[in-house]
Structure formats: C-alpha cells, structure tokens
Design a protein around this nucleic acid. Structure first.
Lengths: 336, 336
DNA sequence: CTGAAAGCGCTAACAT
DNA sequence: ATGTTAGCGCTTTCAG
C-alpha cells in the first residue's frame, strides 16, 4: 500500500540494503546479475526512492522559494513563468508564496520558506513593505536570496531589475520627438526604487530637450482607482497635458478611456504610453503604445542567477546586479 | 554556521535530546526550570526544528502540488491566488508546476509531484492532453487528486468546475431578450468538456426561444490568431451575426475590434459577450459584457475540498463534484 | 562483490 | 522528571 522501500527489496531478494542501494545506481562494484535482479524487482514493484530521506541526509531539497506580490498581474505572472521554466530545466522545484501586497503575509512567507529549508529564495517585495528585517533573516540563515523587480534597497544581495531609467527616458524622448511638450508622469509611490528611476528617466529626457519639469505634471497614480481621481484633475489643467507617460498598462488604458470620454482625441490631442506590454495593449482602442519589460526573461535571468549562486557557479564576490533592457513598442495611442 | 540541532542543545545543557525535544513542546512531564532553560537557549541560538527530519518521520510534508496549464492568464492566476490563500490558511505549502499547455510538461509535472511525495494535487489539464495515464498514476500512488476547471473525464476523482452550461444559457438568453436573434458561438475545441457544456447551454437557450441552430454560427475560436481568421469570415455571412458569444474575454475583445474596423457599431449592430470577467473587460471600448467565472472562489473551493480529503474530513465516498456558479456582468458591449 | 554499522534530526515507547 | 533506545529511508565508510 504505502511505498516500497530499499529495505523491502533487500529482504525480498535476500540482499543487504546497501547492495540494493548500489545496484540501483549502477555502482561498478556490483555484479551485472545482481543489478538486473534488483532493478527488475524495483521496476515491477514500482519502487520510488524516498526523496524525504535523501533530503534529510543531504540537507538539501532542491527547492527554490518564490515570493510574488500579486500573481493576478500580467507582469508578475510572466516573471513566474520564466522562473518556473528555468528552475524546472535545472531540476529545482518551486515553492510558491503570495504576499498579496501585504507586509504581514510577506513576513509569513519568508518564515515558511526558511522553515522549509529551501536552497534559495527569489523575491519581489510588496508595495507596503517598509521594514526588511525578515529579508535579513534569510541572509542570516545562509539562504541565497535574489530580488527581482521590486528590490529591497536595505539588503545587500543579488538582484535583477528592469532598466526603468532607460525605458522611461526612451519613451519620453519618443513622445517629445512626435511633438509632445506637456508630458505628464503618472508614477508609483516614491518609496519604490522603480518609481524613482522612471521619474529620473522622464525628467532627464525633458531636461535634454529643454522642456520644463512641472510639479503639477507629476502625480502618484498606479491603480484604476487613483486613475479615476487623478486623471480628470490633470485634464483640467490649462494648458492640459498633451501626453501621459504611465507607470503601467492598466493605468494607461484607463487614462485613454477617461481622456476620450472627456472629449479628447487619442492620439491626435493626447498621446498615452503605458509600461509592461501586457495583452491589454492590443485590445484597447486605439491600441496602446508601451514599454516592454520582458518579464519572462527577467524570471529566467533571476532564476539562473540564483541557481548559479546555489551551485557555486557564480563566483563573483560582492553582489551581482542584472539589468533587463526594455523596448519601446509603438502602437496606436501615440501620435506619429 | 549550519543550523543548530536538538542534539547540540542537549549537549550544551547536559541533557538528553529527548528531554530537549519535550521541553521545546511544553510536554507536561518536564519541569518548568528545564523548559525555561532549554527554550531560552534555543531562542538565543536561533534553533529551528529541521522540517526535513520531521517529514521523514511522519512521511508527510504538508505540501500540495498544483498544476496550472498557463499562468499568464487572468483566470488561472486568479484560481492560483485562491488556492494559495486557502492552502496557506490551513498550513499547507504549495509546489507550483506549469504545463504551459504542453502534454510532456504535464506528465513531467506529475512525476515531480509524486516524487516529492506531496499530500495532494490540484490540477487543470492542458489543452493538448489526450491521454491520462499520468493522472491515473497519482491515484495509484494514493495521492489525493482534485481537478479544477479543465477536468479529465477519464479519471474518477473529485472536481470543481464552473457552471458553464448555466453561464452560457443565461448569457445567450439575455442576448435574445435584448433582441438578438442571429447569435454566433465562438467556442473551444470540443474535446474539452467546458466547451461542450457551453455549447449545450447556448443551443438550449436558442431552442427555448425557438431560434434556429445554425452550423455556420458555431466555430472553434479560442485564441487571438483564430479570431483574426474566423471572425472576418463570419462577418461576411448574409445575414451577418447580430451577436457573438465568445469562449473568453480575449477573443471577445478581438471580436469587437475586428467588427468595429469592419464598420459595425457595437452594441447597436452587433452585441459581444465574453467569458471570465478579466480586467480587460473594463478597458475595451465599449466595455465588455461578460460571464464572471469567480476564479478566486474556485481556487478556494478546490483547495478546501482537497485538504478535507487529505485530512479525512470529507467523508463522502465516491467522488465529489462542486459547481461554481457564474454571474452575467452586463457592461457596454451588448445592446440594452 | 557484498554486508554490517553508523548517522542525517527528530520523536515516542519504554525504561528508570 | 529525565534518559535510553530504536527507527523513519537512504547512503557511505569500513570490513570482510
């Protein structure tokens, strides 16, 4: 009923467990006859080595923990997909944790993963997180840690981030090249590095082209709820923005919707640019110009970096920081 | 460096490992003094019980495996979110596998999970899967199995499905009530039960209202690629469809886009209805009427059912089949 | 070529 | 109230 063990095989075949163990792994010192005998018996009785026992011996479970802030989200699900593919191809299992943008849950996830004695952890922090004592705990427990996207600046560890600065810079410069000059920035809370880097890219592009950096053109607006509140206000400005550079595709989509129903033509009067290149960019009307973040690649790169660290292949001391290049994808929401 | 063990504590305190073990769990037969001594020492030295050892003893690892066909997908990521929440609240960890709609990967995922000796498995099969010998393997290994959404009809086990029939029936009846009479059905491959159930709901609604069931109004069309091929053909029909009932929101969104650019007014000339209620339904123009599948709830229900089975709380013999009710969500793409 | 014994970290039955 | 022993399933010296 329960699984058959090495001992069972040994008993049945009048051999010692050690011989059976060796026979199963084709140890050279075992006679062909014995090997065949053992392997045939194992096959017939569907013997499966007990992973748990192995894990206890080696104190390794070939498992990577991953903490995602919000899985119902194009970007993060893409990253997870990349992580999974890379992990699987290297023989690692994935323990999935979901902070749901909640600090307490994030802390609990970390505890769970440390407790499970995973070989390494891939994490992106929640929007709420302000302390990082729990992440430090990971490091203190000698567990490899790689942050992706939403990195925690307080912890000195490997990370993989999108080149937010360049992504924003290039997008804004493109908007300028099409004749936009009053470009609004809809960002995220400045406590997140990604928000700051994008703002800097945005501002530097304006500076380079001698456009003014106006305070009223820069707002925190990273959810549909905020969009409904903030965007109508900005459309009231005189002169109104002639372009919106948005922190994500969803906000950009709402931005188009709100602007259209306020009577503005897109892209003729107002250009809108998103960030991520999720599937919504193809179903809005017009389709949405956006910055591709290559989430899948980020996942693969992060997983690979972590695995290399675990296996001692990434020998570089100090911390490694990988940058994922972005690509501006021009669709229909920006003027030509 | 490595973790401290019970034995280490015992040695340091001149006690036996068993006493330390008991002291840690407040066994009544241990003196208060010893308990305090041990617990203080453990605290100071950051003792963490070795889960792996426990798992070997009990042959249980409190882990549930989940196999998702495609995580970059609103519905499935929602389900995963529900599964995760329920599992976490019951103290189970989640081993995440991703078949990516690929049969081979699905088989491998099953092997990985059996190998990891999970307590139970939640699975939704890939579109490609035609054989189910691997799922049978799960059952043969005495591992609890619950299918969700894309169930495998060949395996006799618990399942949680969306009420596709009623969802389709109600949606189509609504379309009829608004005056549509030439309603097209864009479905999935008939090998999937969910596709058949919806088609039956669709057809029964037509029958009830004495509308003809036309072969040319029923096509397989469940991806953007197919949409671009199939929908223009259907718009050529004379008379053209005055409504499309689509298998998912994405196809519905493309359907709107294609119909609009062919010159049709939505919803005045053509009504469009999707299925899922994903976030794209709020950013299309017009917004998309759809059938809410309640993925989060499905995830919670499936996980709960599995956990009850694992813990012997679901005593009902035979198989349990839970139905998730749908809700028609009327937005802007259907006439009033 | 094969076997005996020890040990990974923990617990529980059985002493004392 | 505490200690001894055995064992979960496997591997790996060390000894034949």
């Amino acid at each position: 009923m329960g699984q058959i063990t090495l001992k069972d095989i040994a008993q049945a075949l009048n051999l010692s467990p050690s011989t059976v163990s060796r026979a199963m792994k084709n140890h050279p010192a075992i006679s062909e006859d014995t090997k065949k005998l053992v392997q045939k018996y194992a096959e017939q009785h569907k013997y499966k080595p007990n992973t748990l026992a192995m894990q206890l011996r080696t104190n390794r479970n070939n498992t990577i923990g991953v903490i995602v802030p919000e899985i119902v989200h194009y970007f993060f699900s893409t990253v997870l997909s990349g992580i999974q593919e890379e992990a699987e191809s290297e023989g690692y299992k994935l323990l999935f944790c979901h902070s749901q943008e909640d600090y307490e849950r994030e802390v609990k996830s970390v505890e769970t993963l440390i407790d499970a004695r995973v070989c390494g952890i891939l994490a992106s922090q929640s929007k709420e997180t302000q302390q990082y004592h729990h992440f430090q705990e990971i490091v203190d427990n000698n567990i490899r840690l790689v942050f992706f996207d939403r990195i925690c600046t307080g912890i000195n560890t490997d990370k993989v981030v999108v080149d937010d600065y360049a992504g924003a810079f290039n997008a804004v410069e493109y908007l300028i090249s099409t004749g936009c000059s009053r470009i609004a920035f809809l960002g995220s809370h400045p406590s997140m590095p990604i928000a700051n880097n994008r703002r800097m890219g945005y501002e530097d592009a304006l500076r380079k082209h001698k456009l003014p950096i106006l305070k009223e053109m820069n707002r925190v607006c990273d959810t549909p709820e905020l969009a409904r509140e903030v965007i109508p206000e900005m459309l009231q400005l005189n002169p109104h923005p002639d372009a919106f550079f948005c922190v994500n595709d969803e906000v950009a989509a709402y931005c188009m919707q709100i602007s259209k129903s306020a009577g503005f033509k897109i892209p003729e009067e107002i250009s809108v640019c998103g960030f991520t290149n999720s599937y919504i960019t193809d179903v809005t009307d017009p389709t949405l110009t956006t910055v591709d973040q290559h989430g899948f690649e980020m996942g693969k790169v992060a997983a690979r970096l972590l695995i290399n660290r675990i296996e001692g292949k990434e020998t570089k001391p100090g911390i490694v920081s990988r940058l994922i290049k972005t690509d501006l994808v021009i669709k229909g929401s920006t003027r030509k």
